[in-house]
Amino acid sequence: MTLKYTDDHEWVSVEGDTATFGITNHAQEQLGELVYVELPAVGAQVTKGGDAAVVESVKAASDVFAPISGEVVAINDTLEAEPTKVNEDPEGSGWLAKIKISDASEMDSMMDADAYAKHTG
């Protein structure tokens, strides 16, 4: 398993050809308590940097960009009833979706945990 981070404050965990992603703890702290999460449809094609999900706090809606291109193969539909899971456990039970990776080289530009910590520090 490989864990990487993007400039847009997402984490990506890769096992085989599938990437699970979500927003980082830093991102959820910036957003505040979430009240709604909109996820892509299973089967949808997403493109790295394109719209993948929307997370909404009381105050604002924020786009979440796809960290990697591919097909959405699973979504965390428990977030519909419990969007605050993203606040409580952003890099665990608050995951957003799983993508079947179409181009693994897109991982190359991502940061490891140390580099991401420096990026947000």
Binding site: G32, E33, V35, S57, V58, K59
Partner: peptide
């Protein structure tokens, strides 16, 4: 201040 550490929902 848009919010304090308690957060908007708690403040509300």
């Amino acid at each position: 201040p848009v919010q304090y550490p308690a957060g908007i929902v708690t403040e509300h």
